[in-house]
């Protein structure tokens, strides 16, 4: 196991309250709070994977859209976290996420309009059954 990965796992384990796991030095020297960049990246990675699962497993078009929103949110969380812990100006990460939220709203409204249209012509919103090219 690489040192960085080990350290990251140590951060996670030590904050989970595991006994006998020494607190990672990198996180301890940053500030008094033990929550660091890694924690947000882990949350974001988990939700991203769940979003991918939802998109592949589910067949209802609206549920697919929900998975997409999960993925967009995890990306936005990464931007804000990197803005706080890595970037020179923390507002820059927030700006990207702000635009991301706006674009997600536009995308959701358009996708739902398309889904309504598919439902009107095919009487279903299961993506497996909408396979004909000519409506």
């Amino acid at each position: 196991m690489t040192p960085g990965l080990f350290q990251g796992l140590q951060v996670v384990l030590s904050t989970l309250g595991a006994e006998g796991v020494p607190a990672a030095n990198a996180a301890a020297t940053v500030l008094e709070s033990s929550i660091g960049l890694h924690h947000y990246l882990v949350v974001s990675a988990l939700v991203f994977g769940i979003g991918i699962m939802v998109i592949i497993i589910r067949r209802n078009a609206i549920v697919l859209l929900m998975g997409l929103e999960l993925i967009l949110n995890s990306a936005g969380l990464n931007f804000v976290a990197f803005g706080k812990y890595v970037a020179a100006d923390r507002i820059d990460g927030q700006m990207v996420t702000l635009f991301l939220i706006v674009i997600a709203a536009a995308e959701a409204s358009l996708a739902l309009a398309i889904i309504l249209n598919i439902f009107n012509s095919l009487n279903t919103i299961e993506v497996d059954e909408a396979k004909s090219l000519k409506g």
Binding site: L5, A45, G49
Partner: peptide, 21 residues
Amino acid sequence: AGLLLMAALLFIALQNPWKTH
């Protein structure tokens, strides 16, 4: 597939030496 992507992202997130301040 989701698990694989999750693992890849976790690996990158935890293994990469981020220049945090």
